[in-house]
Simulated assay, not measured.
Amino acid sequence: MRKRPGGIQAMHRITVVGGGFAGLTAAITAAEAGAKVTVYEAHHTLGGRARTSPGPYRTNEGPHALYDRGPHWAWLRQRELVGPVGRVPALEAGRFRLRHHGVLRRTPPFAMLKLLRRRVERAPVDRDFLSWATGIAGEEGARAAANYAAVALFHHDPGALSAAFVQERLRRAASLPPEAHYPLGGWASVIDRMAARAWNLGVRIETLARVDEVPAGAPVVVATSLASARRLLGDDSLRWIGGRTVLVDLALRTRRGDAFVVSDLDAPGWIERFTAQDRSLAPDGEQLVQGQIPVGPGEGREDGVVRAEELLDLGFGGWRERVVWRRESVASGRTGAVDLPGSSWRDRPAVDRGDGVYLAGDEVAAPGVLSEVSFNSAVTAVSLILGRAALDLRRA
Rank of each mutant, 00 (worst) to 15 (best):
I191C: 01
V203L: 01
V166G: 10
S175I: 12
L208I: 01
T207D: 10
R169M: 07
S228H: 14
A164R: 05
M194I: 03
A198R: 01
G242D: 11
S189M: 03
G202C: 03
D236H: 15
A227V: 12
V166E: 10
A229H: 06
T224G: 02
I241Y: 13
L208Q: 04
D192E: 15
V222A: 05
F165Q: 15
D212V: 13
L170D: 01
G159Q: 00
G217I: 10
I191K: 00
R244L: 05
W199Q: 15
A198E: 03
P219T: 14
S237T: 15
D235I: 06
W240M: 13
L208W: 04
A209Y: 04
P215A: 10
S228F: 07
A209I: 04
L201S: 04
S237C: 07
E179V: 11
L184W: 08
G217K: 10
W187S: 00
A164I: 02
D236I: 10
F165M: 15
L170N: 00
S237Q: 10
A173Q: 07
E168W: 09
W199Y: 14
I205Y: 03
G243P: 07
R172V: 14
R244Q: 11
R169V: 07
V221R: 02
G186D: 07
L238R: 03
A173V: 10
L201R: 03
V221Y: 04
P183L: 05
V190D: 00
R204G: 02
G234E: 09
V221M: 08
G159S: 02
I191H: 01
T245Y: 07
D212C: 14
D192R: 08
T207W: 09
L247Y: 12
R239W: 14
A195R: 00
V190N: 02
A173T: 08
R171T: 09
A198I: 04
P219L: 10
G242F: 05
S175N: 08
R193T: 04
I205C: 03
R169H: 13
